[in-house]
Structure formats: structure tokens, C-alpha cells
């Protein structure tokens, strides 16, 4: 009897905290879902607009810079090799990664004309929130895309996309990690390779527009 009274008392004392935790978790889920919804809508608006390519590029850039945790993703992709890199190498790597990632995203977005999305369930995880969506493109089968949203410096940011269960940042990390293992764990070799990739891309771009 005494025990159950103590339990009731403990529960009553803890209740505000439990309630706060539940409300906070729900609020985080709702805000993550509306954040993803907004980003997807903003991107779709630019994709379907009739702006010239350079204007579209600038508008995409502004949305991505504002909503994607590019530096966080870059550090994740380098994995354990991040700590082995010198500060100078870290800076170089971050700059190259940013440019390559932006090119890859913006290059891909053009293929999404007429895209529609529906927001599904939101799952709260330890470090981030998963927002499930279904992306439908005209003439294509619907794709399940999960957006991983985390709080970075008080602002929600996209950390990863899971396309049909495949994480883009884990795939990228596997690629870099395997490259480094076959190049004596030399981060400079990776940086040189990335620089070469970027130069090739820019050359192709120049050929296309020229």
C-alpha cells in the first residue's frame, strides 16, 4: 500500500517532465514534417518555373544552402579519416565536397519536372527525425524517399536522404572509405581526386554551354 502510494507520488512528480518530453518530441516531429514539406515545395516551384537556367541555379543554391547540412554530411562521408586530415586538408576537402554535392544535386533536380510529393509518417530517432515521403514524377513509378532532419545550431537541416532504403551519405562514405583504403589512407590522394573530378565537370559544363 505504502509502495503504491510512493509510486503514485513519484509518477505525479514526474508527470510534468514526461508530458514535456512527449510534447517536445511531437513538436519536433511536426516541425520536421512541415520543414521537409516546405523545402520540397520550394524546390518544385523552382523546377517548374520558366526562369532561365542561371536564375534557377541561383535559386536552387539559396534553398540548398539554407536547408542542407553540407558540412555535416561532408564530415560524415570522410568518417574516421576526418581526424587524420590536417586543418588545411579539412578546409580543402569541405570546399571541394560542397561544390561537388551542389553540382550533383542541382544537376539531378532538372530531371524532376512536374514532381509531386506526399508527406507520410514522421519517426523520431535518437539524433534526428525521419520524415517519410512518396515522390511521384510523371511517367515514373512512385519512389519512397525518407528525409533525415536534424537540429543544427538551432535550425532544422537535412542530413541525409534514403531513397528506397539506400542512404546517400552512407553510400558516399563507402565510396570514399574504399578509395582511401586502396590509397594507403592518404587523405591528400582523395582531395586530389575530388579536385580532378570537379575540374572535369567544369570542363564538360563549359563545353555544353559553349
Amino acid at each position: 500500500m505504502l509502495c503504491s502510494r510512493r509510486l503514485t507520488f513519484a509518477l505525479a512528480a514526474l508527470w510534468p517532465w514526461v508530458a514535456f518530453e512527449i510534447t517536445a518530441a511531437r513538436a519536433a516531429q511536426d516541425s520536421a514534417a512541415s520543414f521537409v514539406d516546405n523545402v520540397a515545395k520550394e524546390l518544385a516551384a523552382v523546377i517548374d518555373s520558366n526562369d532561365p537556367p542561371e536564375v534557377k541555379h541561383q535559386r536552387f543554391l539559396a534553398i540548398i544552402e539554407n536547408s542542407v547540412d553540407v558540412d555535416g554530411i561532408a564530415r560524415f562521408c570522410l568518417g574516421r579519416f576526418w581526424r587524420q586530415a590536417s586543418p588545411q586538408q579539412q578546409r580543402e576537402y569541405l570546399a571541394l565536397f560542397r561544390q561537388l554535392l551542389l553540382n550533383a544535386i542541382i544537376g539531378r533536380l532538372q530531371e524532376y519536372k512536374g514532381v509531386k510529393h506526399t508527406i507520410g509518417r514522421t519517426i523520431h530517432q535518437t539524433d534526428n527525425t525521419l520524415v517519410q515521403t512518396v515522390i511521384v514524377r510523371p511517367g515514373q513509378e512512385p519512389a519512397h524517399v525518407d528525409w533525415v532532419v536534424a537540429d543544427v545550431d538551432g535550425k532544422p537541416k537535412i542530413e541525409d536522404l534514403l531513397v528506397e532504403g539506400t542512404s546517400l551519405r552512407i553510400t558516399q562514405r563507402s565510396d570514399y572509405s574504399s578509395f582511401l583504403l586502396h590509397n594507403n589512407s592518404n587523405v591528400q590522394a582523395l582531395i586530389d581526386k575530388l579536385r580532378q573530378m570537379l575540374a572535369n565537370q567544369q570542363q564538360q559544363q563549359a563545353q555544353k554551354s559553349g
Binding site: A104, D175, Y176, S177, S178, L190, K193, M197
Partner: peptide, 8 residues
């Protein structure tokens, strides 16, 4: 786009 297509 991959540095090591096999690993990717």
C-alpha cells in the same frame, strides 16, 4: 560519379 564503383 563514384571513385570506386565496386565499393559503391
Amino acid at each position: 560519379s563514384a571513385l570506386d564503383p565496386y565499393a559503391t
